[in-house]
């Protein structure tokens, strides 16, 4: 099942060839390594751009949203 979290989190990001991807994140006082990016997509609200990353970390699913305008990362949901 999926659980909504909607919590601002810190994310370590790697940049390569004009692309970026999250590598690890801090949540519940723990650093969690991102093992696989399953799906990425972008969306807009008005003219605000958002990047979404669905990832796997330690077998669990997490979905992050990167707000380009505010430069913030939000952990939107996870599996439990």
């Amino acid at each position: 099942m999926q659980q909504k979290i909607n919590e601002k989190v810190n994310v370590l990001v790697g940049f390569r060839e004009k692309k970026f991807k999250p590598l690890a994140f801090y949540w519940q006082n723990r650093k969690r390594k991102i093992e696989k990016i399953n799906l990425t997509y972008t969306a807009k609200t008005g003219r605000h751009d958002f990047y979404y990353f669905s990832v796997t970390s330690a077998g669990d699913y997490y979905k992050f949203c990167f707000d380009v305008t505010k430069m913030t990362w939000t952990l939107e949901e996870t599996s439990f």
């Binding site: 999926q2 399953n38 669905s54 699913y61 979905k63 599996s79």
Partner: peptide
């Protein structure tokens, strides 16, 4: 399928 791709669980 897109949902299953995004969330392997």
């Amino acid at each position: 399928s897109v949902e299953q791709q995004a969330n392997p669980t």
